[in-house]
Amino acid sequence: MIPDLTVRVGAALLYIILAPLVGGLVVGIDRKVTARMQGRVGPPVLQPFYDVLKLFEKENLVVATAQNYYVLSYLVFMAVAGALFFSGGDMLLVIFAFTLSHIFLVLGAYNSFSPYSHIGAERELIQIIAYEPMIILTAVGMYMVTKTFYVGEIATSTIPIIMYLPGIFIGYLIVLTIKLRKSPFDLSTSHHAHQEIVKGVTTDFTGPNLAIIEISHWYEYVFLLGVVYLFFAFNPFIAIAAIIVAYFVEILIDNTTSRVKWQLTLRTAWIIAGTLCLVNLGVLYYLQGVLTL
């Protein structure tokens, strides 16, 4: 049941156009909710858009010209990864494109010889190695349930994937915290109104480049929440409710925890989330052998 080419291309284009809007809105709501949790009024919901538009009005001050290239590649490949995802492409390919785009961000940070962005880059890398296995295992889990790696087919399958993959779902939520740059795992850089001494990977980016990074984050958010959707794809309403609940939980975690060291991040992601995923997969594997699902 692969939708034909026009539908796929259409979905990809739709993602490329709409994802920044949706992502920005999600971030805006996130900031509002966060402010309310802290007993503040908070910024307008459209604040993220104001921020990005402002950044585009600023001058582009760089340490090395190549920074522009890395940041642009980050955006482009993030959009490619997301577009592949929403056009129903191969999940593994999506993940590799996703990693590729992050490597560009890391390289952009390494590009400037500042201790701050250097540490940011190292930490971003640690985050990548913390979450990447889990995302791959998520894809593998979905394959084991639906027998396909194609997002299009997973999304239209009627199997309640979440029933088979509860462990993987929790593991995914753990790495989602890392990916959304939420406390306690916001190692490399945090988002919006967090008070920082300096800002990790983004330290040496200014104006338009910073705006591009922000837009890439929005693309990323939509993609990541899209993966949550897949777990509940059998019923779109439940799925959307699940996305909202999951995101709310992430905000709650963000506001009730403080940042941990990278060691603990890596351990949590590999040992706790990894074990959850692998046990889940193992049980599934065993059951499939016994029950011949």
């Binding site: 582009n60 760089v62 010209t65 522009n68 290239y69 642009l72 500042s114 300096v198």
Partner: peptide, 16 residues
């Protein structure tokens, strides 16, 4: 795409 930036950006030192 680096060609886009041949002339434009102003350079500064890294943040120290």
């Amino acid at each position: 795409t680096m060609l886009l930036y041949r002339t434009a950006p102003k350079h500064t030192g890294p943040y120290m």
